[in-house]
Simulated assay, not measured.
Amino acid sequence: MAHVNNTYGTMAVKTGMLIIAAALLFAPFLFQDVRALEVAARICIFIVLVASYDLLIGYTGIVSFAHTMFFGFGSYGAAIALKQMGPGWDAVAIGTLAGILVSLVVATVIGLISLRVKAIFFAMITLAAASVVLVLASQLSHLTGGEDGITYRAPDLFKTANKLMVDDNGKVVRWFGVKLNGKLAAYYFVFFSSLALFLVMLRITVSPLGTVLKAIRENESRAEAIGYRVVAYRTFVFCLSAVAASVAGSIYAIWLKYTGPDTALSFAIMIDILLMVVIGGMGTMWGAVIGAVLMVMAQYYLRDLMGAASEATANIPLLPELLAPDRWLFWLGIIFILLVYFFPRGIAGTVMTKGARK
């Protein structure tokens, strides 16, 4: 009976994943406004970011505060290349590879030096490294644009799309009321790139490597006793996670056409990633999707919902004040506490294991 219930939970989560994937695939046609497209693109990027972080904290038990640092390396790599070389795919390739290379070098050095020590010391070392990179990005204004960041043009493919997708009268072709232009092409570049990265990481978790990572998480001493080089595996997955975050940063830089400390290296992004992992469920990979969708949607739409609720309850004492849009962070915190209480293993983790002990 427990196995049946567990299977139903897994099926429910996977069905939810298909619905989310379909919604993101057809987002430009379902939600025809600029803000909705921005939300969908951000969800795609954060699914990759959270999934890559889940490889560390959920599957291997490594707590790192440097994930946004690798995201920033990818973002700044693409941004600097596009700024210096112009809007070509050669610039994208060079910038992305540069971000990956820097991420690999830094991750390898941090991993080999720090992953032998206790978890709390490693977490502090990664926090210090991320803080140093944030300060450097702000101070090296001749290269990074400092606090103002860098603006640049999109790759030529998106401009070509604008020219190709016109009818005989010179008007942009529309499908279901949506213009087939460069913005749409950019979104599907983000969607399919993010999907490919997520599927690669999902495949890793069900491979023999994923089994070893889980063994290290559960009992590091036993894994080492049966012959696994724990430090080597932990360093490898740290580097793998860094590369995925770096590529996600490059994709986001191409979409946003702007890169700055607030969009690529902010510690607030790291907090968002942690919240998404906890809300979705650590060690499930599907939790990355659920956490990213809920958190990003809350960040963009919770304030609007509270504004509508405040107006609807205008005649009721105290409620309009409590539901004021400026208090959206307070209610987000309340929602987070409730989710942790009712879903102690995250939404995906709790649903997938519900009934397993019955």
Rank of each mutant, 00 (worst) to 15 (best):
T126Y: 05
L143C: 09
M11A: 08
L199H: 10
N315Q: 15
L30M: 09
I316C: 05
M295K: 09
A129F: 06
K118L: 03
T263L: 15
L275A: 14
L197S: 01
S246F: 15
H67P: 11
A215C: 08
V109Y: 01
F342I: 09
L24M: 08
Y187V: 05
A154Y: 10
M297R: 02
S241A: 13
A93H: 10
A215T: 01
A186P: 01
P317F: 07
R229I: 07
L134Y: 11
F336I: 13
A348K: 05
M165H: 02
Y187R: 01
L143D: 07
G291Y: 13
V277P: 05
F343Y: 13
S310H: 04
G72Q: 03
Y300F: 14
C239A: 12
L199T: 12
A23K: 00
F31K: 07
L30V: 01
P261H: 00
L209D: 09
G227L: 08
I347G: 01
L157Q: 09
L329W: 08
G149F: 08
L104I: 14
V293F: 01
G260S: 10
F31N: 01
L275N: 10
G177Y: 07
D326E: 13
A51D: 00
T353N: 08
E321H: 10
E224M: 08
L82S: 04
K214N: 08
G77T: 07
A119Q: 15
A40T: 11
A2N: 15
K354G: 02
V105Y: 11
K163E: 14
